Amino acid sequence: MPKKLIRITTIPLSLEKLLEGQLTYMNQYYEVSAVAAEKERLNKYGENNKVNTFWVEMTRAITPIQDLRAVWKLYKFFKKEKPEIVHTHTPKAGIVGMLAAKLAGVPLRLHTVAGLPLMETKGTKRKILDQVEKFTYKLATKVYPNSRGLKDIILKKGFATEDKLKVLGKGSSNGIDTRYFDPFQFDTTQKKNKRESLGIPQEDFIFIFIGRLVSEKGINELVEAFNNLQAENQNISLLLVGPFEKELDPLKEETFKTIQLHEKIFTTGYQEDVRPYLAVSNALTFPSYREGFPNVVMQAGAMNLPAIVSNINGCNEIIVEGINGVIIPVKDTSALITAMKLFVENKNYTERLSSNARDEICKYYERKEFWQILLKEYKSLEREYIKS
């Protein structure tokens, strides 16, 4: 009988996007179950990926009563299933999953940290989130920050000790499928048609952003920088691929209005497949305030796009200044303008970065290699912690 592995994220979107393909791969070696909220979407994920599913209601907000219900439901599930490994992702799934697994006596309790939302929080809420994070790590057997910078932050904050932390490979939670993110799948005609359908002039230099259109992703600064630059350089466009989240982290009102009214800013909403948008673009702009190990930067690189990223963990590990992109200070609009201007005006420089971009990603972040590293880690921990 194969050993049981349970993977938990707060919402199915994380299973679909952040861990794409990974659970199906692990299903060859374990009996895998995926746990998340949003029952219908989770069931669909299970069918598509041929893994078991178990639904637990969870939210990304602070909801203690609901969270305790989730812990109790998971505890009963673990006692029944008796998994060898429970592996959580995202803060809420982490605290709920690790607590239930500890109470149920699960031998291997693993938690991946793919970013710290608390970094942009202050006051009492920050204190609560700090304690929750610390408690999650205490409950876990092993904690996996998905970047070296994130590991340093965790140590500096005193959330966990060095012996409990490990970065797998060069970082990331899932690597990247470089055969899927391949620029050569899109020919000149396809790219021309895509620009036409978006309403973007063929001669324009396109800056692209992919992700949630919220303040902590640096969208206020990006829109302001683009607005300034476009006033003096007509042949540039800004393509924003992703959803607005007005409830959790809204943009400034003036930013939102500029996005709606500017004739050279284009929005697409959430897109299942971002490759056609990367294929028509010239550079990624990603001025985020905090990340774990951003998939978008890897995806853009694999599609031959140089990137402008903020100097935060993850971003400054994927991008090497002057090799495959430019690194700017966080929340610095003028530095962003300077970098964007450099990309538009110095074609030789931009082409050089572009020619290196894909090689850098293929060399270090191939998805199947990451899966093998993770599987090896599971097997090593089994030998260490589980009596046969």
Rank of each mutant, 00 (worst) to 15 (best):
S237N: 02
S215Y: 13
A231G: 07
E221L: 15
F226S: 01
D204C: 08
E272L: 15
L213I: 14
F205S: 07
E247D: 15
I236L: 11
E216L: 12
P201S: 02
T255N: 05
E245W: 03
N233E: 14
K252L: 14
A231N: 08
V214E: 12
R195H: 04
T267L: 13
I206T: 10
V214L: 05
D249S: 12
F266L: 00
Q230I: 07
G199M: 03
R275M: 01
F207N: 14
I236N: 00
E216A: 06
K246N: 12
L261H: 08
T255Y: 14
F256G: 05
V214I: 11
V214N: 06
L248D: 09
L198C: 02
Q271M: 08
I219R: 04
K252I: 05
I206C: 03
L239T: 05
T267P: 14
K246I: 10
L278K: 05
L238H: 02
H262L: 02
Q271C: 07
G199Y: 03
P276I: 04
R212N: 11
N233M: 08
H262S: 02
A231Q: 15
L261T: 03
I236Y: 00
I210M: 11
I200T: 02
E203Q: 06
F244P: 04
K257E: 15
F256M: 15
P243T: 00
K252D: 06
G269W: 15
G218M: 10
D249C: 09
P201G: 00
S215T: 15
N235V: 09
T258C: 07
V241N: 09
N227C: 14
E203M: 01
L248V: 13
S237A: 12
N228L: 14
K264M: 04
N233Q: 09
G211Q: 05
E247L: 06
L213Y: 13
